[in-house]
Design a protein around this nucleic acid. Structure first.
Lengths: 170, 170
DNA sequence: AAAAATATGTCAGTACTATTGACATATTTT
DNA sequence: AAAATATGTCAATAGTACTGACATATTTTT
């Protein structure tokens, strides 16, 4: 149990800094920024007995109503087994509804209900406000620099998925 | 089991957009950007049987060597029980070392070992490169706009924690 | 028409990260 | 000596993810 010592041995005592990792400060900032960003909705989700996975599913379904289960799985980057429970709960709670495909009756098209629509708005509002406030505080009202940066951070294949959403959404 | 329907009922068929949530596009971008950002180290961590929690712990210990367990808990925003297993594994694997406090012998000061130092560099390099590339692609070499934005996203109390790290790190 | 492929769903088992609550030990402060 | 603090551990629970196996309905291919 005594994995502990009185004297430094092998130890590295100097902090890693910009000399080691040029973007270390931004790495750190991104960690904290994302935590703040997800913290707002987390508090709301607790009221419904939901977690972040529910939020993400509802978000993308609301962003692209009528998407199939397979499309949602691709965007979320999880397995159907992982999505299964989350989706079942969102359907049972009346936030998402499945509609059998007209042309292909194997498919299930996903739509937010009115309740689901209201919930995603409630979850998104504090996030939107936080982003808008941050942009404003830095004099970046048009958000072009930040949007470009975030887009450039994303892998090519994920950017394709995003384009598909943007196309459907306008 | 038939939570599914042939006809739309209560359903909201129009996608949420900028009219509903002004920053909806940036919310979406941030989700994908962060996923890409964490994806790089995730692949490396698997080799060691570690997860993201190990990465975060090692990151902050390396960023501020000599920090106590209590300080690490505060920064990570988790309970000591959650940290316990992760820290024990990092100590057993020889990536972090504990040194009993000289003035207060109850405290355990945490340091990365040489192995820990090398691992955090390996984990941080792809993240740093990704950020640097994204900044460069958007002509934001000095990263001022992006850094300001991320800092402004963070809650006041977390920003204090960050300042403490920055002060120690220079 | 039969066979293969596809879309979805479910069950079982496992892993990682987190929680709360209770309790233990060593050390410092009062 | 008593109280507070820093750390650590055990047990139980929850949320999110995974793999593998199997089932059903439907569509496509042969």
């Amino acid at each position: 149990m005594k994995a502990d010592a009185e004297s430094p041995g092998d130890v590295v005592a100097s902090p890693i800094g910009t000399a080691d990792i040029p973007q270390i400060a931004n790495i750190e900032l991104l960690f904290f920024a994302y935590r703040a960003f997800t913290g707002d909705p987390d508090r709301i989700l607790t009221r419904f007995g939901f977690g972040r996975a529910h939020h993400r599913a509802l978000f993308f379904v609301s962003r692209r109503p009528g998407m199939t289960v397979a499309e949602l799985i691709t965007i979320l980057g999880i397995t159907k087994q992982s999505l299964s429970r989350v989706l079942r709960q969102l359907i049972q709670s009346g936030h998402i509804r499945q509609i059998t495909g007209r042309s292909d009756r194997r498919q299930r098209h996903l739509y937010p209900t009115k309740a689901g629509h209201e919930l995603i708005l409630e979850l998104s509002q504090p996030q939107s406000r936080r982003i808008a406030d941050a942009l404003h505080a830095c004099g970046l009202a048009d958000s072009e620099a930040v949007s470009c940066f975030m887009q450039a951070m994303i892998d090519a294949d994920d950017r394709k998925l995003l384009d598909a959403i943007a196309t459907a959404t306008g």
